[in-house]
């Protein structure tokens, strides 16, 4: 029963979504609305599960006095500060001038932007070590990255300023992004979509069950 009921739930919900695509009328349209609403609600609880799990792990770290337990305490305090403020400020918590939006603008936003920004250094460092024109394919990758990067900054056009405008680096970068890049992305996209469609079908039909985990 522990495996059969989940398989049945997966099959019913999957089939309803597929049927609704072809028959957008009662009862499938109503079921589709219900399922979409339930999906949003369950998704919210799933994020709650993640947050509660983070708290559980952090508390455990403090209790066990593991190394860096102080930072686990900071995680808990930060979590509760923003959560309490967010709940206390009610539905308008995101409006400008609220403490929640202040925390977003001056704590969350700078931290998240800087976290992604420093990746530039690591990507540059990794590419310096990995990018070697060892063969023709690697050279193509290297050249395409080089043209796109240089074409996206003003110095690119300054270097190639003596050429007619359509051959300047910004135009070359734009051509690479518009044509070969689109072709490659399209091939990858179609390949991924074919894989997703077949995997989805396997899941709905109960052939693929790995998401249910082990045990009974």
């Amino acid at each position: 029963m522990r495996r059969e009921i989940p398989l049945l739930i997966t099959a019913i919900t999957g089939i309803v979504f597929v049927l609704q695509y072809f028959i957008p009328h009662a009862p499938f349209n109503k079921m589709n609305t219900w399922f979409s609403d339930w999906f949003s609600i369950v998704g919210a609880f799933a994020i709650w599960l993640g947050a509660l799990n983070l708290l559980k792990i952090s508390f455990q770290k403090i209790m066990d006095k593991k190394s860096d337990w102080f930072f686990a305490l900071v995680i808990i305090i930060s979590f509760f500060v923003i959560t309490i403020i967010g709940f206390a400020e009610g539905q308008g918590f995101r409006e400008p001038g609220t403490t929640f939006s202040w925390l977003y603008d001056y704590v969350y936003s700078p931290l998240s932007a800087t976290m992604f920004a420093i990746l530039a250094f690591f990507v540059a460092s990794a590419s310096y070590r990995a990018f070697r024109a060892r063969n023709f394919e690697a050279t193509l990758l290297l050249l395409s990255a080089f043209f796109v990067m240089l074409g996206r900054v003003p110095v690119g056009d300054i270097i190639t300023g003596f050429l007619p405008q359509q051959y300047q680096l910004s135009q070359v970068a734009s051509w690479i992004m518009t044509f070969p890049q689109t072709a490659g992305q399209r091939a990858i996209m179609i390949g991924i979509a074919l894989g997703l469609v077949s995997t989805s079908l396997r899941i709905i039909l109960g052939i693929e069950r790995s998401h249910l985990g082990g045990g009974d």
């Binding site: 900071v74 979590f79 923003i82």
Partner: peptide, 25 residues
């Protein structure tokens, strides 16, 4: 580590609150 811990706690709390008001409420 301090900045990172604040980021982790604030991010988790941010989505906790946003999804509560948007989806659950």
């Amino acid at each position: 580590k301090l900045s990172e811990a604040i980021f982790v706690g604030i991010s988790a709390g941010y989505w906790f609150v946003v999804l509560f008001w948007d989806n659950i409420y």
